[in-house]
Design a protein around this nucleic acid. Structure first.
Lengths: 214, 214
DNA sequence: TTTTGTATTGAATAATCATTCAATATGGGT
DNA sequence: ACCCATATTGAATGATTATTCAATACAAAA
């Protein structure tokens, strides 16, 4: 009389299986938020998409709030990892590093429409949910300061003095946020190629001698 | 036994009174969305803030959805009006017009933290609410093309040829969106003065001979 | 004054959802 | 073969909330 058969739990896979269900729920949450918005995301829908029972989803994550937070944390960590990989790559010079960052910010993995929708949803509530801020704010400050330092190196290597590193880095970061939002709005116009091109052109205009900002 | 006395309806004021209640509800909606988010905005809260009964709010706007849409429409119209005023002002040359636009985009009236919170909330749901798109998309295309035309005049008057009007205008528009989002996130750092300064510096770097981009 | 139409209320309704939990399934250890 | 610990279910509960609507208040007309 049991329609949904229980999952087989293999002892060697216990840890991994935990991860699988955990991740399935987070993926389903991201998809659901992207499809219906934070407001209309229900545990029932997420559980259905993840193919587990509603009770299980709640049991695993203790609360809906916690499930949402975990999803944001997942995106935040994913971004952090890709960022760190670029900064730890010692084979890159400043220009190469900037280019990698641009490409990462508009890669299929990081800047998929679903994930952007989730980011923007959380951003829109950051004002009154301190828990969301906690997850992102500190990282965001790190990105700001690392970017600024990187631009400082770039300025040092070139004859660019009119714009300060702070200005260039803030301009870059706000452009990315704005373009992400616009990808949601009109993905036809704001393709990844278009966005990357626009930003590279911005840099090319500043560092006119540097040929790598295609 | 009537705690909340009914409003006095003066015949000469009927139209205006309609507007007053209408506008009170819209203002209350904006405040509530900004304070609690789209998800947690209830008609009861909005009605309470507007000091009318819950039933009345629903009666006036027919549905919650309609109340939200009307609030977005209000913001959209407000923006449109200020934009048009700038474009209709024949005393302005292209540079003056660009400066006015920048100042408008970060004015206290247009870019208050509450209003930005509402914009971002709606943006975050635009992907799956065609009704939101309907209100903003066409206007947005107009702003894009008018801005591009304006930059074209600017390029014509100067020796700037490296960046196309399209590129400059898209960069400007995405920076505004990004900075608005960042105002929500961290209003201390992203003050109106900071945002305007950053954008003017962007233009100053492009049009080096133009002294008015302070 | 009485009537009438409109504005406004507030309580009832019905729907939606997060959360809880007792019941059930599973697979390894005994 | 039986027991135990853990994983998972799904139905019940209770809270929240949009929406409805009958009742009320009011102002102008008669």
């Amino acid at each position: 009389m049991n329609i949904n058969p229980k999952k087989i739990s293999n002892p060697q896979l216990k840890e991994q299986e935990f991860s699988i269900n955990h991740q399935k729920l987070i993926d389903a949450t991201i998809e659901t938020i992207a499809k219906r918005g934070l407001a209309d995301t229900t545990i029932a829908q997420v559980a259905k998409k993840a193919m587990v029972s509603q009770g299980y989803a709640n049991f695993r994550f203790k609360s809906k709030e916690n499930l949402l937070l975990s999803s944001l944390k997942f995106l935040s960590d994913e971004y952090k990892n890709s960022w760190q990989r670029i900064f730890e790559d010692s084979s890159l010079d400043p220009v190469g590093r900037v280019i990698k960052i641009i490409e990462n910010d508009f890669s299929g993995k990081i800047a998929s429409r679903n994930k952007i929708a989730v980011w923007v949803s959380f951003y829109s509530e950051v004002k009154f949910r301190p828990s969301y801020l906690t997850i992102c704010q500190k990282q965001d400050e790190i990105y700001s300061s690392q970017m600024e330092k990187l631009i400082k190196e770039l300025n040092f290597l070139t004859d660019q003095t009119f714009l300060t590193p702070r200005e260039i880095s803030e301009t870059y970061l706000s452009m990315v946020d704005g373009l992400w939002q616009r990808i949601l709005f009109d993905p036809k116009i704001y393709s990844h190629v278009f966005c990357k091109g626009l930003i590279k052109k911005y840099f090319k205009n500043i560092y006119t001698d540097e040929k790598r900002f295609v």
